[in-house]
Amino acid sequence: MSGILDTVNLRTQMVGQNRLELLLFGLETNQRYGINVFKVREVLQCPELTEVPRQTTAIKGMAHIRGETIPVLDLSEAIGRHPIPDEDLSKTFLIVAEYNRRTLAFMVRKVDRILNTQWDQIMAPPKEIGTENYLTAVFEYEGKLVEILDVEQILADLYPMPTDVSDEVATSEVRARAREHHVLIVDDSAVARNQMQRSLEDLGVKVSVANNGRQALSLLKGLLDKDISVEKLFLMVISDIEMPEMDGYTLTSMIREDQRMSGLHVVLHTSLSGGFNVSMVKKVGADGFLAKFNPNELAGVVVNRIRQVEQG
């Protein structure tokens, strides 16, 4: 355990093409869960918490960590499982993570190990389980399935975010011009796709969606095989970075390697934090980077691209 606690911060500085490092952890059962190491700031034993008035009991309180006051979320209770009893809090661990510009700590029963794998080894959840769940991906490890939780969905349920674009960004003139354009959104999180789609449709653009990089690449190549120019069809592609089967870095690289769509405008977005994202954006040839999710900033990126296209 001490090795994990000491090295998480160092491991978060590593990034590679279609590569994924998962921190494995457990909740109230023997089921293993995983979280992308790049989202993790640190792991520590749960300190004494400060109670706060709250609408949901899943928020256990506030932890004071390295000069910050951070909300602590009982991850087991947040996904509908049994909550961790108050008398057991001192025996738990906190995974301090950053999502969508928000720092919070997930309370878990145990932290297992860091596992190095590839995004193409990660699978989307079976369609048969439906959409009313908190799974974003699964993969097999040591003969059992490890579940990767859709943290964006969990946080959206706890902290609903507005998706309307302000009139200052989306003026009537901008909305009229936006109706002539089409954007492809790529994201494995259903809540993230829906948030972006609602915001961009509020702006006025037509939106198509894909669940991961492999699906998006298949869609683009299918259009090309029908002699449809995707550079003319789509104003831009806005893709998540961390996705099962094919991540956003690899998708961008594949787009740039295909001469038929090498000029397609690609913006990568992510809930991750850190300067390494910007350097990787440049390395794979993406045209921009966007920290998600803010409806006005998302719309602003699209509006700027519309102006670029109209100016030739």
Rank of each mutant, 00 (worst) to 15 (best):
274 G>T: 06
138 V>A: 01
48 E>V: 13
236 M>S: 09
236 M>V: 06
274 G>W: 03
121 Q>C: 12
310 E>Y: 07
251 L>V: 04
202 D>W: 06
13 Q>G: 14
109 R>N: 08
143 G>K: 06
177 R>Y: 02
278 V>R: 15
83 P>C: 02
239 S>D: 07
282 K>A: 10
61 G>I: 03
297 E>D: 14
290 L>G: 10
259 Q>W: 08
126 P>I: 00
199 S>Q: 04
115 L>T: 09
199 S>N: 05
268 L>W: 06
62 M>K: 01
128 E>M: 13
158 L>M: 05
101 R>N: 12
106 F>K: 00
76 S>H: 02
266 V>A: 00
193 R>W: 08
232 K>I: 07
106 F>R: 00
108 V>P: 00
191 V>S: 00
62 M>V: 10
288 G>F: 02
64 H>Y: 07
157 D>H: 09
273 S>M: 07
285 G>V: 08
10 L>F: 13
39 K>Q: 13
80 G>I: 05
55 Q>Y: 04
248 G>W: 04
281 V>L: 01
225 D>Q: 11
261 M>A: 01
231 E>T: 15
74 D>W: 06
212 N>Q: 07
105 A>L: 07
103 T>F: 00
274 G>P: 01
230 V>I: 05
249 Y>M: 10
157 D>Y: 02
177 R>N: 07
112 D>H: 05
25 F>A: 04
214 R>F: 12
199 S>R: 05
181 H>L: 02
73 L>P: 15
